[in-house]
Simulated assay, not measured.
Amino acid sequence: MQLVYLDEAGISRRSDEPYVVVAGVIVNADQKWKSIEDRFIDLTDKYVPDYESTYGQPFIFHAMDIWHGSGNFPRDRYTRESRIKLLGELASIPFEFDLPVVAGYLKKADYENYLQARSPGMKAEAISKWSHAVAFFSAIRRVEHWMKTKAPNEVAMLIAEDTDRVKGLIGALHAAYTDRSYHWVEGAFQSEHIVDAVHFTKKKQSILLQVADHMAFIVKRRLNKCPHIEPLWKKVQPQISYRGVEDYGIALRVPTSDVEVVRLPEPPASASSEASPLQRPVRMPRSSPRIRGRGRPF
């Protein structure tokens, strides 16, 4: 069984964070989980030697805290050089343990315009939730593609950060695309490999969610064309699984007595054939393409 750990980034104001990202890693738990746990224990001993675990909880290496020198990594205690070195070691974990990295994202402005055109007056909170859900769905289609091509005889289970903000919506979408009790619907995504419910947990209870946190943070910074993220991006890029399955819709069975059918809004189409923002050098700015509705490369 493969375990897929996912986290989000870019969920604050659009003016500050133009992209919403859901990213994470795929882990063969039987072969690699304990080795990764040992790696985090070593990192804790090296960078936080005075940490004493209580109630069995590991130390949390929040990417944003390390990057900004805040939280558990204040600047008066951790120099910029030491924080950059730590971030580099954390960013190297996917390559070190050969963990595939998956990421889904969308540009908030494009998707907000699309939703407002389809549903005038749609509230900002609803737009934010759907944007998060679409980024999640994009990442899941990449998980499915990796499973079909690299582990066709295995199943995968999803572990995501516990957040009340979108847990209900993501759980409903997940239940739809993992329902294999009916025949396939053309154009609708139905997973062959992802099983069970999405398991929501806190970062303080899961070491691998910390890896997902760092992947989401690095991908978000890359999309935002932050030049200082390049050394970390180069460590992550070789492990990214770019392709997703082609099916992009959701088939959902509902009782005939229901008068409303809930479905996933399609992202706006784009005629652009440019490479995605993730594949472009930061030093060569170009206009970002709109989010594609199908599972093509970033």
Rank of each mutant, 00 (worst) to 15 (best):
I11K: 10
R13D: 15
V20Q: 01
V21S: 10
I26F: 05
I26Q: 07
K32E: 05
K34A: 10
I41C: 02
T44M: 02
T54Q: 13
H68R: 14
G69I: 01
G69F: 02
R75S: 10
T79L: 07
I84N: 14
G88I: 10
D98E: 08
L106V: 03
K108W: 08
R118E: 13
G121R: 06
M122H: 03
K129F: 06
S131V: 07
F136S: 01
H145L: 05
H145E: 12
T149Y: 05
K150D: 08
M157W: 07
I159E: 01
A160V: 13
D162P: 05
V166N: 14
K167E: 11
A172G: 04
A172Y: 12
L173G: 02
H199N: 15
K203L: 04
Q205A: 11
I207S: 00
L208T: 12
L208W: 06
L209E: 04
V211A: 09
A212W: 07
H214R: 07
N224A: 15
W233L: 03
K235S: 11
V236Q: 04
P238A: 05
I240R: 04
Y242V: 08
A251Y: 01
A251V: 02
P255E: 06
S257R: 12
P265E: 07
A271S: 14
S276C: 08
L278W: 07
P281R: 12
V282W: 00
R286P: 01
S287W: 03
R290T: 09
G293V: 07
P297H: 02
